[in-house]
Design a binder for these strands. Structure first.
Lengths: 206, 206
DNA sequence: TCATTTTCTGACCGCATGGCCAAAATTATA
DNA sequence: TATAATTTTGGCCATGCGGTCAGAAAATGA
């Protein structure tokens, strides 16, 4: 039986346990990105990893736990990278531009992760059948963007637009930029991000 | 066997055949909107319509054909309504505002259709396993928006932004406005649309 | 070395799905 | 009414899914 020792809510795992989990997560990312969430069965993921299907069930409580771990590992890396890039900036305009360019540059080097993340966000459902990562999962991003907008509106950089609408709009613009890039790999992602920064600078400034 | 007479690529159907198809499509819309595409099996749709499962197979070649018909009927109505509302307008700014407000007003009265359409767009896959309505299905909308932008840029209303990026951005803003409204029914859709019109007017104008 | 624990395998289970079809029921036609 | 065409029924099928399990294999430790 896999060890389930807990401390501070964190599972304590052996190195080979951790390695297996990482390997399975990586295989899941690649399979999902290639054939889509709906077709990415545990059997396919195991086959891609060169292991038996039961290994996944042994290391993960179920498919949902595996998917959640894919999201957490991938998403955590994005937040870390982009957050670091925004450190030290003060003006709202600078922050928004750094966010847009930073996330685009990071994802440019992580295409399969991006595609898999999108698939999981769209398809994964909870036990109740409702989406696990629906629109409401964006609330954290909306709040962060609204904070930047409030900063800009107070400093006079921005006009007094509806911050919620602007946040929903900008977040969707980023999401769709990536979706467009996934569909059209030859599309210039960085140029798109720069153009977006210009567009939203005009949309926001007083 | 169902009559398959073709003329001009259109199937000629009896009234009761047409009525059954319409009934099944309506049931599909309601079931998909309520429990999501993945859970909306033919059995569930038939049960909701109060008919046997085989009836659907009799009137439609398969689940895919049913889903495509749902999209075509719903989408056609939207295009008709909004298109009529844009008739006679000439300036690019007016056209964009009429589009935004028009589509919002129409969808406000067709919530279940909107939810079902979104589910199908996201989930439906072709025989090859690739999405049937992916990003590339937006090409028609992108082209239409780009045409309006070109108009505005020629007349001097708009600055010379990248039309493709703006089209992708605006289309995603509309899609996400609806998705947000579906998730938060108390959200003021018309106010959101007006705000969006203001935002993109600022983003586009010289 | 040998006993114990951890990890892996491959077969198996119950379940839901889309599709199929023979026969029954209904409707249209002569 | 009698015959033919259309429509509906309800059960059946093969498929693929996530998950489970006994036993084999490998790693660990005394």
């Amino acid at each position: 039986m896999r060890s389930e020792n807990e401390s501070d809510g964190q599972k304590r795992r052996s190195f080979i346990e951790e390695a297996r989990r990482a390997q399975i997560v990586a295989s899941a990312v690649e399979v999902i990105a290639e054939i889509g969430f709906a077709q990415a069965s545990l059997a396919r993921i195991a086959q891609h990893a060169g292991i038996s299907k039961g290994v996944i069930s042994y290391h993960f409580a179920g498919k949902d736990e595996l998917m959640v771990e894919v999201v957490e590992r991938t998403y955590g890396l994005i937040a870390e990278t982009v957050g670091a890039r925004m450190q030290g900036l003060s003006s709202a305009t600078e922050l928004l531009r750094a966010y847009l360019l930073g996330v685009a540059e990071h994802m440019r080097g992580h295409r399969t992760q991006l595609a898999a993340l999108g698939e999981i966000f769209i398809h994964l459902r909870g036990a109740d059948g409702r989406p696990r990562y629906g629109i409401k999962a964006n609330e954290e991003i909306y709040r962060a963007l609204e904070g930047i907008y409030a900063l800009g509106q107070e400093s006079g950089e921005f006009w007094h637009f509806d911050r919620r609408v602007m946040a929903v709009t900008q977040a969707s613009a980023v999401d769709n930029m990536f979706a467009y890039w996934v569909a059209y790999p030859e599309h210039d992602l960085d140029a798109h991000a720069r153009e977006l920064a210009d567009i939203f600078e005009r949309a926001c400034r007083s």
